[in-house]
Write a protein that binds this DNA or RNA. Structure first.
Length: 275
DNA sequence: CGTTACCCCTGGAGGC
DNA sequence: TGCCTCCAGGGGTAAC
């Protein structure tokens, strides 16, 4: 469920509540998410102060400090993870795997499928951690532009859609946003990456930015609700032009939206509008 | 090296 | 109602 906009909205929602707050206690109720959760992790976290929360791709990076040194807690929501701020004593439900208990509030991490993760990095060099070091450009950074993407794809014969979702190239573009961005840019998800012109890459990058930023803005207005309430993740999901609209009419031409499978993932597109 | 197949895990939807 | 199969918004690894 979580794509980059939801992760960013979560980050923005958590910041005012957690910045400068000291971790009273950390509770882990499962030995393993995507990665092992070492038994000593809870005691390492206790007493640390959260100085800030950064985002890299879909990873949330909690900067945790104390007089005796600190480190970073990396969280990833995987496919089904969600974060909420709950009051002390709120009953734990199934799949509530992690609590970060602060004096005023508790950050609760739920993840039924457990594709998400929590990883502790001792020290300050979080950007050198293997999970983070391999990541490509941020899609909302100025470095990510049409010229860069054009240059990066000269040798790539793979279809553009799975390439757009490759986090080693550019992070945070999930299945929904890949489909929506390609539709907005009028580019077929099947087109070989090297067969797309510089000009069309400029259009594609603009489409990626536009879909991500529109979604973040839509979520932004409900940030406080999101992190406080039990409202489900995806409550601010954008309405989609092609994603999950198999057989329904294209909003531009009326032709039925096609669904195919690429690299094990569903792809939705309009064969008439996307070339 | 580039690209695909499969796996991690649970739950919901739909067929029978 | 229940059982079965398939599918799901992520990402890593093995295999071709």
């Amino acid at each position: 469920m979580p794509e980059l906009p939801e992760v960013e909205v979560s980050r923005l929602g958590l910041l005012p509540h957690l910045t400068g707050q000291r971790l009273v206690e950390a509770v882990f109720r499962t030995p393993k998410l995507r990665h092992e959760l070492p038994p000593e992790l809870a005691s390492r976290l206790a007493g640390l102060r959260v100085d800030t929360i950064l985002r890299r791709g879909k990873y949330l990076l909690f900067d945790c400090e104390s007089q005796h040194g600190g480190g970073w807690l990396i969280l990833h929501l995987g496919m089904s993870g969600s974060l909420r701020l709950v009051a002390a004593g709120t009953p734990v439900q199934k799949h509530d795997h992690v609590d970060l208990v602060f004096a005023r509030t508790t950050l609760r991490f739920r993840d039924p499928r457990r594709f998400g993760t929590a990883v502790w990095v001792e020290g300050h060099a979080v950007e050198q951690h293997p999970l983070i070091a391999v990541l490509g450009l941020e899609p909302l950074s100025p470095d990510f532009d049409g010229d860069w993407l054009y240059a990066a794809t000269r040798q790539r014969n793979t279809p553009i859609k799975p390439l757009l979702m490759d986090s080693h190239l550019v992070v945070g573009i999930g299945n929904i946003y890949a489909a929506e961005s390609l539709f907005q840019a009028g580019i077929s998800p099947l087109r070989a990456a090297r067969r797309i012109s510089r000009e069309r890459y400029r259009i594609l990058v603009a489409a990626v930015r536009s879909t991500l930023e529109t979604s973040i803005a839509a979520g932004g207005s409900s940030v406080r609700d999101y992190v406080h309430s039990d409202g489900g993740a995806g409550s601010f999901q954008l309405s989609c032009a092609v994603y999950d609209r198999h057989g329904e009419p294209c909003l531009h031409c009326g032709q039925p939206i096609k669904q195919i499978r690429q690299a094990g993932r569903s792809t939705f597109y309009c064969a008439h509008c996307q070339r």
